[in-house]
Design a protein around this nucleic acid. Sequence first.
DNA 1: CAGATGATATACATAAATGTATGACTGAGT
DNA 2: ACTCAGTCATACATTTATGTATATCATCTG
Lengths: 303, 303
Amino acid sequence: MTESEPSWDFYRTFLAVLQQGSLSAAARDLGLTQPTIGRHIDALEAAVGAELFTRSQQGLLPTDTALVLKPYAETLASTTAALLRAASSSRDKVTGTVRISASEVIGTEVLPSILAELQAGYPDLVIELSASDAVEDLLQREADIAVRMVEPAHEALLSRHIGIIPLGFFAHRKYLERYGMPESIEDLQRHKLIGFDRQTAYIRMMRKRYPIFDGITLAFRSDHTIAQHNALRAGLGISFLHIPLARRAPDLVRLLPEIELPLDTWVVMHENLKTSPRCRVTFDALVSGLLDYVKGGTDGRRS
Amino acid sequence: MTESEPSWDFYRTFLAVLQQGSLSAAARDLGLTQPTIGRHIDALEAAVGAELFTRSQQGLLPTDTALVLKPYAETLASTTAALLRAASSSRDKVTGTVRISASEVIGTEVLPSILAELQAGYPDLVIELSASDAVEDLLQREADIAVRMVEPAHEALLSRHIGIIPLGFFAHRKYLERYGMPESIEDLQRHKLIGFDRQTAYIRMMRKRYPIFDGITLAFRSDHTIAQHNALRAGLGISFLHIPLARRAPDLVRLLPEIELPLDTWVVMHENLKTSPRCRVTFDALVSGLLDYVKGGTDGRRS
DNA sequence: CAGATGATATACATAAATGTATGACTGAGT
DNA sequence: ACTCAGTCATACATTTATGTATATCATCTG
């Protein structure tokens, strides 16, 4: 009853065990040893008064309680990481690490040239880019700055509207030589289409706007956007693509120009970070680079 | 350069030093000793590569860097507290601690009777009530459930609309015997008014709706709502009050019934907590109790 | 079915963090 | 001017946590 608060390090160990699935693996991950990890878990279980794992000899199975606690531990981990990033940047100089979250397409195809220029201007700036379509939470400091395709709702977020990235249908010249040019939406039925594996909110919106797509079957599906782009460039089929991106690839031909979908874009940052020089310059660089990209500016050239 | 991540306990120590203002006080707070606290701070400063405090013999003065890191450390503290609350409640039974955030008026005058009934129904439930007009952040788990007077914006929050609590002018019978009954808004000029010390968003809204109040001077000001209520009950002057609250005090008389301000009310909870029995029953109890209160139900009687 | 691999648990030695005791300094009050 | 209560810093003893080595068990593989 008179027990004091457990060491916060136990939470780090707890999360590592959850993520790695065994005491030994967690020990390797944290640079500690297996007995230490075991003792941490024992101590944490005693402190919270609940079983966290059912021990077995091929690993540890988390209990329901452990799964309930997992998001809290994840918050702790992302917060400590954010704290260290914030600490690493001194007050006046642009140093330290900035973590950016963006979609796969933006992160892999658009940002590299923008960030290269930024890095050239600030050699002490370390850039961490998370290119994933899973949304990272700025409020929980999983990232410092994010490029978002939905309007940010929370008022604690400082956001800058970039504008609309237009999407259009494209195919490689080689593909068109073989299969011919589709002349109408209905004509797409006989073509090879490249698309997503799962339903996203954006795809549902598109289907609502162009109901014709409901009946179209896809010849190539992948959740991985880059795989789709490479399939497009390899001449596998027809796919949606950012129109500014297609300008960089001379062998890609725009199809059905009457179809154009908007991808509204924002750059978002937590308001508390606006006084941080490293975040400020990165935010500004992203805004200006993306504005150029949307306008189809020439500086988005690939290396 | 090959330094590993600092112990998470250092962040707890860091926050305690920030809050307490000295190594010695932080040591007392955490149940450690002053040399240990000093070593923790030294280690943390070495790990982040920045000075966190300027040492002096009457205490420690936080540097700018330390102030930047403070909110992160606060998030860590509230998250660990929330984790422990979550851990203390078992999966099926209503046990453990639930932390509720509400305004001073609601928390001190309205909730006690509701929570007493809840506690009677669930003896193993421990209720923690933060009655403060400072908003606690549900997203950062500073509280599990909140009673709010503004509509919740974030989509990760599960909210239930209660309705409008009407506010009206009241005075104690004794006061009216001495100063007479005001017959109009203009008549208030010659009366003793009780009100807030600072400008809140709600007060600005009220001034906009009844511009006449701009010219009125207050005879008694306090940021502390309870102090205002007690001043009202002591016959010091005229004040706004929840109309359902006034029903419980027979000596309070409603004035200027044509003036009635709305206080829109929600009960809000983080969506992740809806599967937690202790939060679920507390949420339901708050909703039902507050609905009764708004309707002026009879079960809101004070003990 | 034997052997390799990878898991947890335990015993013991070692390293690390903590506590105790003390000194030096500051500022407030007498 | 002096005490007193407060602070931080340092030296040393002790407790605590960690690492090493080993035993035991399960699973997969040839």
